[in-house]
Structure formats: C-alpha cells, structure tokens
Amino acid sequence: MRGNRFWSWVVFGLGAAYFLLPLLATLEFSLSIRRDGYTLDAYRNVFADPGFQQTFSYSLIIGLCTIIVGIVIIMPAAYFVRLRMPQIRPVVEFLTLMPLIIPPIILVFGYIRLYNSSSFLPLTGSVMGTNILLTLGYVALAMPYMYRAIDTGLRTIDVQTLTEAATILGASRLRILTRIIFPNVITAVLSGAFLTLAIVMGEFVLASLLNRPGFGPYMQNIGANRAYEPSALAIISFVFTWSAMVAIQLLARFAPKSSARKD
C-alpha cells in the first residue's frame, strides 16, 4: 500500500513538473528585465501600455457579449433538445463539435466571403457590423464548450418533470426556462461562460483577420517586438484563465442540491 502511494506521488510530481516548470521559467523570465535582480518592470510596462488596456477591455466586452448571445441561443436549444427531441441529441452534439474540427481560419474566411461589404448582409462594412460578426464567430467557436456545459447541467435535473410541474401550474415556456430551468443549471452555464471568456480573451485568428483590436492580436504583436513583456502577458493571461477556473469551482458550491430522498 505504502509503495503504491509513493509511486502515485512520483507520477503526480512528474506531471506537475511537466506543467509547472515552463510556467515557472516564463515567470522567472518575466521578472528578469533588469540584470541586477528580479523586478516587476515588465508587468508595469504592460499595464501602462494604453494598447493593453484598450485591447483587454475590448476583448472583455466582446467576451461578455459572446456569453450573453451564447446563452440566449444555446440554452433554449439544449433545453428543447432534451425535452422534445432527445433522439436527435447525438446529431446536435456532433454539430456543436464542428468548430473544433473546422479551423477558425476557414470559419473567418467563410464569414468574410458571406458578409463582406458587397454581400446581402454587409457586416464587415462597418465597425459595429464587424464587432457583431466577431461576437457571432466567437459564439460558434465557444459552442462546443457552452453546449456541453449547459447539457451537463440539464442532465443533473429532471427537465421533463420540472417542466410538466410548472406547465400544469400555468407557467409559460419562457417562464419555465428563465425561472425554473436556468436557475437550476446556472453553475453549468457559468462554467460555460468562463470557458468562453477564456477562449475569447486569447483568440487571435478571428480578431486579427476581421481587423479588430482584440487582446489576442495585441499579445502576438507584443511577442514579435518585445522580449520580457510577452512573458509577463503570458503570466497575466494564465492568471486570468485560472481565476476563471477557480470561480467555476467556487460557484459549483452554490448549485441547487439534489433532493431525491426516500425517508
């Protein structure tokens, strides 16, 4: 037994080292801008850069819009598939995986071809239109994560019976979705939301090819022109993503609890 535990710790240590050593190396490098010791200058430079603030805020806003649009589209879809058409769930699941199969570059060229300034819906003809297109593109990119998160949440509740219980009490579909179903899968929705935010914050291809000032292109630009600041940005980005993950874990504690008791 003791031997088993020792080897478990060895495997765990090797795994942790594999992930943490590059991170520690990046952190160490980001602090080594001066020869005389460690300093946070690289971080100061990054935070002082107006480009950082602008692109970070831009991506954050687009990320929030993506989450809202994603929830509005995916939540009812996942709910109705579970409620009315459970037999087509494998098909829907496959469709939601498409963004993982199709590279974003193909997606964005498709968008540009379909929605260019001389098309029937010239979204790329204006800044707002391009922002909308970028948001919708991100909704598509985040769909595998958002759909799965929501669907997993729906699996934990008895969608059919809760819907019937609310229906017979006179509730409309919209009320059932917003007052009964959504609050009971909110933790799952939020995990999807944080994953979406993490994707949007680091996304490069769509923002770059649609020529929008996203955080992804900014990081790439800094990486091409500076030495220490890209490492600082990588650490900041990492901290941001991990904060989102921790938030998911914390929120899971507030999930409505199962109540199946026989006593």
């Binding site: 809760l162 019937e164 219980a165 609310a166 229906t167 017979i168 199962s258």
Partner: peptide, 20 residues
C-alpha cells in the same frame, strides 16, 4: 385544452419540487 387551461393539480412520483 393545454394542461394549464384544465385547472388540475398534479403530484409526481419524483416530487418535482423546484430546487431553486
């Protein structure tokens, strides 16, 4: 008629209380 228009109350095997 829709279930909501029939003025009936229903109790389910799985209780179906709204957890939230």
């Amino acid at each position: 008629l829709k279930p909501s228009q029939r003025n009936v109350g229903m109790v389910f095997q799985s209780y179906a209380l709204f957890p939230n």
